[in-house]
Computed example of a mutant assay.
Amino acid sequence: MLKRNNIILVLFYIQFANINAQHIEIGDNLFAAGFYNKAIENYLLSKENIKEFKIAKVHEANGDYVNALKNLENYIAVDSLNTLVNFMYGKTVLQLKKLKKAIATFEKLTEENENPTYFYYLGLAYEQDLKILEAVKTFQKVIELDNFHLKSNYKIALFEMRAERWEKAMAIIEKILKQQPQNTDFISLKAQCLYGKSDFKNAKKHLNI
């Protein structure tokens, strides 16, 4: 009798898990198809904590960072160690200009994993918090980890130009353009750099490309 009851209990848990998984899967399909409200409705039917992260992603896609943050905080209250959730939390609080929280989150992530993307967002948080020296060092760290990280190279080239270190800026710009000669962002930077060096003829040439 006891064995029979255990089997029934196991079958009940399997059915329960399957139902929760179905709600998540249906929500994922609706989200992918662009039915945001319907996706949230299905996620809410699940009892799994992952639904909070899933709903947060829907809110993020819809530009609703306030509600995305609420769901991320709900998830983290249960599981604070999920790296992917913490990364999204960092990006969300950065979007909402909660800079101290963003910096603390990305600093912790970079301590755990030298991922260039984590360092890039940490640099953005420092920059927005007007910690320019820390931002520059962090963007340079990104380039050490990924030499052709476009956004970090762009940031450093821009910082060098603002400091009127034209040759250093140009070296970064040429490095990227050698790999991507049609990159309009760096072509524009090159024109600005040439203009800063008073090379107006070549500056105009690059502006007209």
Results as ranks from 00 to 15, higher is better:
Asn86Ile: 00
Lys38Gln: 14
His149Gly: 07
Thr110Asn: 10
Leu130Ile: 04
Ala68Leu: 02
Val10Gly: 12
Val78Glu: 01
Glu127Tyr: 06
Asn208Arg: 03
Lys151Phe: 12
Lys197Thr: 02
Met170Ser: 09
Val66Thr: 11
Asp146Leu: 09
Lys97Leu: 01
Asn20Cys: 04
Ser188Gly: 05
Phe148Ala: 10
Ala135Phe: 04
Phe159Val: 10
Tyr154Val: 08
Arg4Trp: 00
Lys54Leu: 11
Gly90Asp: 08
Leu207Val: 12
Phe53Leu: 03
Ala32Thr: 15
Leu9Gln: 14
Ala191Ser: 03
Asn202Pro: 00
Gly34Lys: 13
Phe87Met: 03
Leu30His: 06
Glu25Tyr: 08
Pro116Thr: 01
Ala169Met: 10
Tyr65Trp: 08
Tyr120Val: 07
Ala77Val: 00
Glu167His: 12
Ile7Met: 11
Ala163Trp: 08
Lys3Trp: 06
Gly63Thr: 13
Leu145Lys: 05
Ile50Phe: 09
Asp79Tyr: 15
Asp185Leu: 11
Ala163Gly: 11
Glu144Leu: 14
Asp146Gln: 12
Ile209Leu: 02
Lys91Ile: 00
Asn62Gln: 15
Leu96Asn: 01
Asn67Leu: 12
Leu109Arg: 00
Ile40Pro: 12
Val136Phe: 03
Asn183Thr: 07
Phe139Val: 02
Lys100Cys: 00
Lys168Ser: 14
Asn29Gly: 10
Thr138Ala: 13
Phe148Asn: 05
His149Met: 07
Ala163Thr: 10
Gln179Ala: 15
Gln22Met: 13
Glu164Ser: 13
Ala21Met: 09
Lys205Cys: 01
Pro116His: 00
Phe35Pro: 11
Tyr36Glu: 10
Ala21Asp: 11
Phe139Leu: 04
Glu25Pro: 01
Glu134His: 05
Val10Tyr: 14
Ala77Gly: 00
Val66Asp: 06
Leu96Met: 00
Leu145Asn: 08
Lys137Gln: 15
Leu11Val: 11
Val58Phe: 07
Thr105Ala: 07
Met88Cys: 02
Glu48Pro: 09
Glu174Pro: 13
Asn37Glu: 10
Leu69Pro: 01
Lys197Trp: 02
Gly34Ser: 10
Ser46Phe: 09
Gln180Val: 14
Ala56Val: 04
Leu72Phe: 03
Phe87Asp: 02
Ile76Val: 05
Ile176Phe: 08
Leu11Ala: 14
Phe186Asn: 03
Leu124Ile: 12
Asn202Arg: 05
Glu160Gln: 08
Leu69Thr: 07
Ile50Met: 10
Ser46Arg: 15
Ala135Gln: 08
Leu2Phe: 15
Leu30Ile: 10
Phe53Cys: 02
Ala171Gly: 14
Asn62Lys: 15
Lys137Trp: 02
Gln15Trp: 07
Tyr65Gly: 07
Val93Ala: 05
Arg4Ile: 10
Ala56Tyr: 05
Gln22Phe: 11
Phe159Gln: 12
Asn18Leu: 14
Asp79Thr: 13
Asn18Asp: 11
Leu81Val: 01
Lys175Gln: 08
Gly123Ile: 02
Gln95Cys: 01
Asp185Arg: 04
Arg4Leu: 05
Phe139Ile: 00
Leu194Met: 05
Lys97Asp: 01
Lys70His: 11
Tyr154Thr: 11
Ile26Val: 15
Arg165Phe: 10
Leu72Pro: 00
